[in-house]
Amino acid sequence: MTEVEIIRDRGPRNYSRRKFIKGVIAAGATVSASSYLFRGPGVLTAGQARGGVERLMTLTVNGQQRRVDVLPYETLAMTLRYKLGLTGTKLGCDRAECGACTVHIDGVTHYSCSMLTHQVRGREIRTIEGLESPDGELHPVQQAVMDEGGFQCAFCAPGFIMSMAAFVEDNPGASRAQCAQALSGNLCRCGDYNKILDSAERAVELMDQRA
């Protein structure tokens, strides 16, 4: 039998994935690594800043100003989940396939797994935690889901609800078919699409009532 030695080194020598990512960032594009990773403060505070210049920045999240230390290659999903404690935003695929990490940036839906936090400086970020009003009143979309008993395991729910909220806020009177189109960037593996669309239709009604 042939014996081979495999050395786990995925790229050409002296060109690690992280260096590649740095290059991509320098070019201003979004990163697409095999999976997103979380860099915590542990190594950095030890004085090693391999990711380039880390930046203390202010993010506007759910109407609050949040000061946060963000690395150049950090995705918004990672910042939200691991630095701001906003774990309602879920990671289902790590790479723009499932929509579980959907958030609003200036009122527009984005996959937070595929946005760099540095891209959203100065912009309004809204997450699932920011839909409910401070007095506990649910957003019409959330109320609609309560009314219709939507979702099963609900791991996809925050993403779907964010997509639904952005859509119904901008599209009064939307039809069921239009809602389906708007939600087609989100995946539900429980297959609860029928009830999700019932909820979307109910949300359209509730938005109309509120308007």
């Binding site: 906003l86 774990t87 309602g88 935003t89 879920k90 997450t127 699932i128 935690e129 839909l131 409910e132 649910l138 959330q142 889901v145 309560m146 008993g149 939507g150 979702f151 609900a154 791991f155 729910a157 925050p158 609800i161």
Partner: peptide
């Protein structure tokens, strides 16, 4: 548990 699931409070 539905309210927790749709407000992001449900912890997985």
């Amino acid at each position: 548990d539905l309210r927790a699931k749709i407000t992001g409070r449900a912890k997985y």
